[in-house]
Amino acid sequence: MILNFSFKLLTEGGKLLCKCSLYKTYRVASSVPVDMVWGKLINLADMSWHPLFSQTNLPKGLIPKPGLIFSVVTRLTPFPIRAFVESVRPRELLSIRLLAIPGIEQRITYQIESTLCGSYIAYSITLRGWLSPFIWWLIKPYSIKVANELVNAAAKCH
């Protein structure tokens, strides 16, 4: 687990500005093959395994590509949040940016590596904006579980 938090107070033109950012990574080693984990991860229509997301508006079988915009409903709020697929490297990386509310920018990155005994999954969260400490306080209990839940869901399909 890696945590990097920065908080800067700046003055510009007589105004006080606040810049906050948080970067957190969780890592899990698994005996589940990379193909199984990747298959579960890219099925964005089925987020039943995700501790924070409950559903999306994507059809089953759609493969995520950079530029794909979709809606996600979280377990914390009843209204949908827009999500944008930033980057995809098959069997290696999926990066998604959440476009929830002004004052916060959130990027989620999943990295998967193949090992001799299975796979290695890294789940990273980057929060930027003056609301990042509050948002982190809300999502931290869920974020801790994401990588483990992904591995468990892929193992059930195995």
Rank of each mutant, 00 (worst) to 15 (best):
S132D: 05
K156W: 07
I101D: 02
A153Q: 07
P64F: 03
R91C: 01
L99S: 03
V88T: 04
L10I: 08
I108G: 02
S124C: 04
S87H: 13
I96T: 09
N152R: 15
S143N: 11
L93R: 13
N43W: 06
I101R: 08
G67M: 06
P141L: 03
L3S: 11
T56Y: 06
T126S: 11
P133W: 00
V34S: 12
I144V: 14
V72G: 07
P51T: 08
V28W: 07
T25Y: 01
I69K: 15
V72D: 07
P59D: 15
L9M: 12
S31E: 14
I121C: 11
L10C: 08
A122S: 15
S6K: 09
A154K: 02
R97Q: 09
G14C: 10
R27M: 10
L76M: 15
R82Q: 14
L58D: 03
L116P: 12
L131D: 01
G61V: 08
V85M: 01
C18F: 13
V73E: 12
V151H: 02
K60G: 13
S71E: 15
V37G: 06
V72F: 04
L138S: 08
K8A: 09
T11E: 15
P66W: 03
L17V: 10
W137I: 00
Y142Q: 01
C18H: 12
K8M: 03
L94M: 02
R89V: 15
A29M: 10
L52V: 05
